[in-house]
Amino acid sequence: MIEWLRILIDDILRLSREKNKPVSIKEIVDETNVDREDVRDAINEMEKEGLAKYKEKVLLTDKGKERAALLFKRHETIEKFFGGKEAHKIAHSLEHFEDKDIEYMKEMVEGKKESLKNFKEGMEGIIAASTISNPKIISRLIGVGMAPASYFRVEQVRSDAIILRIHNRLVVIDASIADKIFAVGIK
């Protein structure tokens, strides 16, 4: 199937789930900014796959509902790790990855987010979000491997800095920065 068509179908499924009721073509067009004809194509394809039936509105079949639930869960997972104020939007752009691609994140979604400064030596976790607003610092953090959804282990805690093993490299982070990074603990 063509890539955009699959993305559009995912969008329709997600929208239906979010609204929790059948959606109309107009609603879909408004939400996705796609042409009417394309939406029609997508709905046709959904009918063919048995995901939905079209009667004035898009009615999801059981199979469609199941798929939508899966998508929603995936969205939620990504949202958790690629957080920030716009977590929802970012998650939306990443959720088009296939399910198996983000499998690794799902296992950790249950934990609670906590500031990195609360992590003690030897504790492990997954980077989830930050409240840092300086893009240069974010760029640097991502560059040294502190991107969202990265596994880490706290190796040492100093008064002025924290030393992590992340992507198998040792990285030192200023304590003032560690305060603003949030992670989900494992174990």
């Binding site: 990504i78 920030g84 104020k85 716009e86 970012i90 840092i132 974010i138 969202p148």
Partner: peptide, 15 residues
């Protein structure tokens, strides 16, 4: 809706 566009772009790329 994107008060910090720079960070959102960077995070998406890192994703």
């Amino acid at each position: 809706r994107h008060p910090n566009l720079s960070i959102d772009i960077q995070i998406t790329k890192s994703g």
